[in-house]
Amino acid sequence: MLEAKLSEAALLKRLLDAVKELVSDANFECNEEGIQLQAMDNSHVALVSVKLYASGFKRYRCDRPLPLGVNLGSLTKVLKCAKDDDICTLKAGDDADILSLTYEAKSAYADRIAEYEMKLMDIDADQLGIPDTDYDASVTMPSSEFLRIVRDLSLLGESVRIEVSKEGIRFVSDGEAANGNILIKQNAEASGKKKGSIEMNSAVTLTFSLKYLVNFSKSSSLSKKVQLMMSNDVPLLVSYAFNQGHIRYYLAPKIGD
């Protein structure tokens, strides 16, 4: 059985927000190390991978590996019933057909305990083996900055070309009616304050769909920083780390004909 108690429901709410538009159903793989989710979008262009460490929970118990097949739309609805600061406990039996969620709040006048149950499903999903990659460029920047760049450029065109060079990291969008490019220079003072960093072994140029990057940026509520890992001709890794775990997205590049 699984019993996992989170100190704030807000974490799950934010994670669901960051995943539900890419994936409709997914297995939450629970084991003694924690809870993990890995799923691709329908078009097999993007993959999202979430990890919540057992140590990130107020209490965590999982006796044996348990895949919980979750409809993310249903879970989103059930989580809407929780207040952000409610203590949230997830429970499932070994048959994994029902997920129960308990929300506990202490208000000034009374203790409130709310209990919800949702049906689980069998999901037959292909698990992809993600190879370990030594990336040629690694860029860390404020997640709010990345959100703003991809949202702005998505107004102009469908794609963004990302160029990492000695100059810094440049985001370029060529739309039909307008184009734009944004350069972020390596700034000694800023990197000293650990606002961001650009590390590069060799120059990288890659093109990606902005629709997906805008979607990934929903994770900005989970972490103040985002890390972009890139090598030519391989999928981009966009990683957000937070205290209890991480969310990572992989996005296949676009290529010229």
Binding site: P131, P235, A252
Partner: peptide, 14 residues
Amino acid sequence: MVRQQTLGKFFGKG
């Protein structure tokens, strides 16, 4: 003209 690739080309079934 640019073409969107899929992840299957890069990631094997694990």
